[in-house]
Computed example of a mutant assay.
Amino acid sequence: MSAFVPDARLVRDTELLTKLGLCELRLMLDARWPWLVLVPQRARVSELFDLTPLDQALLTFETNLVAEALKRVTGATKINVGALGNIVRQLHIHVIARIEGDPNWPGPVWGFGSAVSWPDDARMSFEHSILEALQS
């Protein structure tokens, strides 16, 4: 059995915040949207149905946990959750806070403009807020 390794593009485009029961929780390195990514720590998994039924249930639980924490921290109008995987085939779930009037509202975040780097202090503050919200 091979060990879990996150896709190189996920490593490049995100920062690891913490490890939950099943997933790595990663922050997308694009400050335009509060954008988190859940990556199940399972090797060679590209589809939800590739997971065991227990892992599917745990992924749903962790997705809801992260989505709720993100909504509390940001006050978002809408939380978008999606698993596309057309470019990065490794199963990963995007959890994105959308706020009316944000860049490209109400359109999709994918393929819109160029990523904007997080200022270090803003990124650290956001990370702290998310991790704290996950504990409450």
Rank of each mutant, 00 (worst) to 15 (best):
S2G: 11
V5N: 13
P6F: 04
P6E: 07
D7E: 11
R9F: 13
L10P: 08
V11Y: 06
R12V: 00
T14L: 06
E15G: 12
E15W: 06
L16S: 10
L17A: 11
T18V: 13
T18G: 05
T18C: 15
L20A: 02
L22A: 03
L22C: 01
C23D: 00
E24C: 03
E24Q: 12
R26L: 08
L27P: 08
M28G: 01
D30V: 12
R32L: 00
W33N: 00
W33L: 02
P40I: 01
Q41D: 01
Q41S: 08
A43Y: 03
R44C: 09
R44G: 13
R44S: 14
F49V: 14
F49E: 12
D50I: 03
D50F: 05
T52P: 04
D55K: 00
Q56W: 06
L59T: 01
T60D: 14
F61C: 12
E62R: 09
E62W: 08
E62G: 11
T63M: 03
N64Q: 14
L65E: 05
L65A: 07
L65N: 02
V66S: 02
V66F: 02
V66C: 03
V66Q: 01
V66K: 01
A67Y: 04
E68R: 15
R72Q: 11
V73C: 05
T74H: 04
T74N: 05
A76V: 09
K78H: 08
K78N: 10
I79W: 08
V81Q: 02
A83K: 06
A83M: 05
L84K: 04
L84V: 01
R89Q: 14
R89W: 12
Q90Y: 00
L91A: 04
L91I: 05
L91S: 02
H94Y: 03
V95I: 15
I96H: 01
A97G: 13
R98A: 10
R98M: 11
G101P: 05
G101L: 10
D102H: 09
W105M: 05
V109G: 01
V109N: 00
S114A: 13
S114N: 13
S117I: 02
P119G: 09
D120I: 13
D121M: 08
A122K: 15
A122G: 11
A122W: 10
R123D: 10
F126G: 07
F126E: 05
F126S: 10
I130G: 03
I130H: 05
A133G: 09
L134V: 00
L134C: 02
S136T: 13
